[in-house]
Structure formats: C-alpha cells, structure tokens
C-alpha cells in the first residue's frame, strides 16, 4: 500500500508548491489527480517517484519510507523520453539489465506484443509517431513489474483520437498485473475514464481539495449518463477549487506560469 503522510514541498526559491497532502492508495487501485496549472500535482508525483525529496512529511510504500527512486515504483513522463540511441526493444528493456538475457528477451518480446509494436522492435525512436513512442514509454515503465505506476499527464501531448486509444490501451495493460496507478492529468474525461477515485487539488499552496469516488463499472461507456454525471461532478469540484482564489486572480497567472513545470 502507498501512503502519503503530510507531504509538503517548498522549493529553495521559496515557492510553496505543496502542503499537507495525506492519502492512501490500495494495491491495484487507479487514482487520478486533477487540478489547474501550478496546483502542485506534478510536484506530488515527483515526490512519490523519489525524484524530489519532500520538505515535510513522507511517502511510504509497504511500510518503508521512499527517499529515492524505488524499484517498485515506475514512472511515465509527459514526453516519452526514450533514449534515442537505443532501439525500441532496448528502450523497453532499459530497466531490466539485472535480469538474465533469456528472461529479458522474453519480457521485452511480450511487452512489444502487448503494445502492438512487435514489428518496430529494431526501429529507432525517431521513427515512431508520438502515440507509438508513448506506448513504448509505458511498456518501459511496466516491464520491471512495478507495484505502483505513476503517470504525469502522459497523453496531454497527443491528439484526441490517439489519446482515447491510449487510455483504453493503458487499462488493458493495467489489467495484466493490476499495479496501483496514480495518474496526474488536467483532462477531466481522462480522469473519469481511468480512475476509481479522483482527487481534485487546489493551488497555492497545492493541497487536496475534494475526493470523488465515481464507482462506475468497467468497461466505461463515455456516452452514458452516469459517465456524464461523474464528469460534471469533477468539473464542479474543479470550479470550486479555483473559485476561492478568484479574489486574487490578478497574480494567479504569473505564479501559475512560473510553477507550471
């Protein structure tokens, strides 16, 4: 089980990105984090990944505090970040170097098949489309079989068709081993399609604002009334999270722009 206990982050430049974030995620659960720009959702994800150390509080996985990148936690970034000098197959196998060769080859082959890129095994990353590259990135994060997979706005750079396609694909891959998924997104529909539970965050300092349990059955029908209702529910919460700050809207844009990445 993954737990956040009062996680807060203040950057050396004084930016107060995150305050008092506490929640727990059960194994196999899919949780989405939504919020406007600069609400600290990426900061939180980086703290869980062990890429940034929280200033306050701690991240706990199965009883142990996470202070550095952890073997049971995988991450998919907003960009595919494939290594351009490795073939598609070698990119997928990047985190498997400790395994015997036969095992490695088998896992890479299986992953290539699962993401539908078997014929691209020997291709260079530059030869892939954006959607294909992101599929390779997801495969690369999944082949070490992490308990927790973090996704930082993984589909935001893709067109709407590819995005919907990859969302289904991700669920399909998730069903294999059912790792915990924590997905940061600013796309409400994406959150509702994928997540069991949705946290809406509130900016400056970033904190949890509202929790929404959609309880929709899978597979989810994007046209259904229940789906629309859940979407409206999240949008309303998102509105509320921003509304309280509407008084000092004047300085919101620059602050948000500065913390955006």
């Amino acid at each position: 089980m993954l737990q956040l206990e009062g996680v807060g982050k203040t950057y050396p430049n004084g930016a107060h990105a995150l305050e008092g974030v506490s929640f727990a995620v059960e194994p196999g659960e899919i949780v989405a984090i939504v919020g406007g720009s600069g609400c600290g959702k990426s900061t939180m994800l980086r703290a869980i990944a062990g890429l940034d150390t929280p200033s306050r509080g701690r991240v706990v996985l199965d009883g142990a505090t996470v202070t550095a990148p952890h073997e049971k936690i995988g991450i998919v970034f907003q960009e595919p970040r494939l290594l351009p000098w490795l073939s598609v197959a070698d990119n997928i196998g990047f985190g498997l170097e400790h395994l015997p060769k036969a095992e490695r080859v088998a896992r890479i082959g299986e992953a290539l098949r699962r993401v539908g890129l078997a014929e691209k095994a020997r291709a260079w990353p530059r030869e892939l489309s954006g959607g294909q590259a992101q599929r390779v990135a997801i495969a690369r994060a999944l082949v070490p079989r992490p308990e927790v997979l973090l996704l930082d706005e993984p589909f935001s750079a893709l067109d709407a068709f590819t995005r919907a396609d990859l969302q289904e694909h991700l669920l399909d891959l998730w069903a294999d081993l059912r790792p915990t998924l924590i997905l940061v997104t600013h796309d409400v529909e994406e959150a509702v399609v994928l997540a069991d539970r949705i946290y809406v965050m509130k900016p400056r300092p970033g904190r949890l604002f509202e929790e929404i349990v959609t309880g929709l059955p899978r597979p989810r029908d994007r046209q259904s009334v229940r789906f629309e209702t859940a979407k409206k529910q999240v949008l309303a919460a998102l509105d509320r999270s921003l509304a309280r700050n509407s008084r000092d809207k004047a300085d919101e844009a620059p602050a948000g722009a500065g913390m955006w990445w």
Partner: peptide, 27 residues
Amino acid sequence: RKIVEVGRAFRLSGAGMIRRILLPAVL
C-alpha cells in the same frame, strides 16, 4: 536533463549513468 532523469528513475549508479546515458549522449 529529462533523459538524465530517466536514468535516475531507473536507479542507475554513477558509473551506470555515465556508461548508459552520458557517453552515448555526448558521442
């Protein structure tokens, strides 16, 4: 920096980071 971060996320050691990320990147 983003590629180096991939190396960090996969817990590369100092030597591993040089061999698998830095050397090919500067070649």
